[in-house]
Amino acid sequence: MALTVERIEVAGVSVDLATMGAGPPLLFLHGGFGLAGHEACLEKLAESFQVFAPTLPGFGHSDLPRSYSTVDDLAYFGLDLAAHLNLKNAVLVGACFGGWVAAEMAIRSTSRFGQLVLIDALGVKFGDRLTRDITDIHALYQADIAKALYADPTRGQRDAASMSDEGLTAMVRDSEALVLFGWKPYLHNPKLTNWLHRVDIPALVLWGEQDGMVSTDYGRKYAAAIPGARFESVGDAGHYPSLEQPDAVAGHISAFAGANT
């Protein structure tokens, strides 16, 4: 199913924004592979929320300003976007790479947000210098990447041969943007853990039980680093629960937001 997307300009950057549903506002920040595959979850969330799902600068067809090179840039962009949309008391949801961006936003300002939900979020490091927390997917064969990311690897399959040039361009740009923002240090900000104490809104850390990219143990530590955060897991899901278990994820978010308004 295709999302209805409009083009908006925020802080001089032209990006795609999908908007759907009615209700309290919810800002959804996608993972390293963009919004593709997460439509069902967004539609489900739209039954309870007014959902705003931007495509972050550099990903999909959204512009990438020359000056953008770190997740800091995306965090400030996200805060500008929240202001542009005039969000009030919104649920800020970030999955995978988008979870990292959401966490970076939340340590800067939560003034437009009422709750934070991180789904299999990247961005922090807990292990020692010889212990990698985040699987180096850029050192894996394609088949092994699918095994690392999905409880059922068939769920994440995209058939490049049947995709349009436009779709393929978006896919290639997703992978480039992920690398631009996450190459070194690898998909994390060594300083982020030190600042998670600044998150001053109720937070839910939601984790796929079969995540082979970042373990549930990492997820629990992430939750423990955020004051008062809850940790909940999603069965039969890997790194992208919103793709593999869209209804369950929407249910967790709705229940959490309902209990914390």
């Binding site: 850029h138 064969y141 480039e176 690398v179």
Partner: peptide
């Protein structure tokens, strides 16, 4: 090895 042949970007 495949992963190192063509890094994104």
């Amino acid at each position: 090895a495949e992963p190192f042949k063509n890094p994104p970007g």
